[in-house]
C-alpha cells in the first residue's frame, strides 16, 4: 500500500517545527509501524535527505522508548499497544497519517518525534524506591505478601514510563505515572515504612517539573499501553491525603548514605 505521512519535523529544541509531507510507498501490512518508518528513512538517507528521528529500542512494547502520537492518539490508540507493536494491517492504501511527538510542557521536543522525558527519572529519584542497601536482606520468604496484594502491586509496576499518559492529558498531568510507582511500592509491606515520604516527595517533584493538574478525565488510562488502572490515582490521592494529615514536611532524602556518613568519621 501507499501512504501519505505528515510528520513533525523540528531541527532542535530551539527551532520552530512544522509538518512535512512524505510519501511512504510499497508498505506491506505485516510491517510494524516503526518498520514502515525504517523503510521511509532508508529511502530518505539514500536520497541524501534527513531521515525522521524517532525513538525506539526493544521494539516489543516493554522498554517504553517509542512514543509519538499517530493521528492525534498516543501510540496510535489501540488497546494495550505501544507504537512499536502497532502493525500496518490497521491502515489501508491511500491513508494519510499524521505523526507528531508527545506534546507537553514537561516533555520538550529535542528533535522531530523525540522528546525529553528525563522529568520521569527525577520523579523516581525523589522517592520511587525502597531504601535498602545491597546485602543484609532477610530471606525472601520471611515476609509473606498475599497473592492479591502482589498481583495488584504488579499491575501498577507494569508501567513502562513511556509518557503516553502525559501526552494524552489535556492538562499534561503525570498522575498515572506517579500513581503507578507510588502504588506499587506503597502496597507492599516492604514499602510501607517510607509510604508517606514517598508520596509527598514524588508529588512535589511532579509539580516542580511543570506537569499539569489531574481533573479526573481518565484519558491517561485509556491510552496506557500497559493498561495501568485509574484506581491507582485514587489510591495515591488517599495516601497523599493521609501523609498531609500526619503533617510531616517534605522529607529530603538523607543526602548522604549511611556508608558515606561513616566515612566522615576519622578513620585509621
Amino acid at each position: 500500500m501507499n501512504l501519505t505521512l505528515k510528520v513533525w519535523r523540528q531541527k532542535d529544541a530551539s527551532s520552530q517545527g512544522y509538518l512535512e509531507t512524505i510519501e511512504a510507498k510499497d508498505i506491506n501490512q505485516y510491517m510494524s509501524f516503526l518498520e514502515m518508518l525504517d523503510v521511509v528513512n532508508e529511502h530518505l538517507i539514500v536520497e541524501g535527505k534527513e531521515p525522521i528521528s524517532f525513538e525506539s529500542d526493544c521494539r516489543e512494547g516493554i522498554c517504553g522508548a517509542c512514543s509519538c502520537a499517530i493521528n492525534g492518539k498516543p501510540h496510535g490508540g489501540h488497546k494495550g499497544t505501544t507504537t512499536c507493536q502497532l502493525h500496518m494491517r490497521y491502515f489501508k492504501d491511500g491513508d494519510t497519517i499524521v505523526i507528531e511527538p508527545w506534546r507537553s510542557r514537561a516533555f520538550p521536543v529535542i528533535k522531530d518525534l523525540i522528546v525529553d522525558r528525563s522529568a520521569f527519572d527525577r520523579i523516581i529519584q525523589a522517592g520511587g524506591y525502597i531504601s535498602v542497601n545491597t546485602g543484609g536482606a532477610h530471606d525472601a520468604n520471611s515476609i509473606p505478601v498475599s497473592k492479591e496484594i502482589a498481583e495488584t502491586a504488579m499491575d501498577a509496576a507494569a508501567c513502562i514510563g513511556c509518557g503516553a499518559c502525559v501526552a494524552s492529558c489535556k492538562n499534561g498531568s503525570a498522575m498515572l505515572f506517579v500513581a503507578a510507582k507510588v502504588s506499587h511500592l506503597n502496597l507492599l509491606p516492604q514499602g510501607k515504612p517510607e509510604k508517606d515520604y514517598r508520596v509527598k516527595n514524588m508529588v512535589t517533584q511532579m509539580d516542580e517539573e511543570g506537569f499539569g493538574n489531574c481533573t479526573n478525565i481518565g484519558s491517561c488510562a485509556e491510552v496506557c499501553p500497559k493498561e495501568v488502572d485509574l484506581k491507582f490515582i485514587a489510591k495515591m490521592n488517599r495516601d497523599y491525603g493521609l501523609a498531609i494529615l500526619k503533617g510531616e514536611s517534605r522529607h529530603k532524602p538523607d543526602t548522604i548514605s549511611i556508608q558515606a556518613e561513616l566515612s566522615e568519621l576519622p578513620i585509621d
Binding site: 535498602v132 525472601a140 502482589a150 502491586a153 504488579m154 509496576a157 511500592l185 516492604q190 514499602g191
Partner: peptide, 11 residues
C-alpha cells in the same frame, strides 16, 4: 535483595 527492594515476584 530483590524482594527487599519491592520486586513484585509471583506468589
Amino acid at each position: 535483595q530483590c524482594v527487599a527492594q519491592g520486586v513484585p515476584f509471583a506468589r
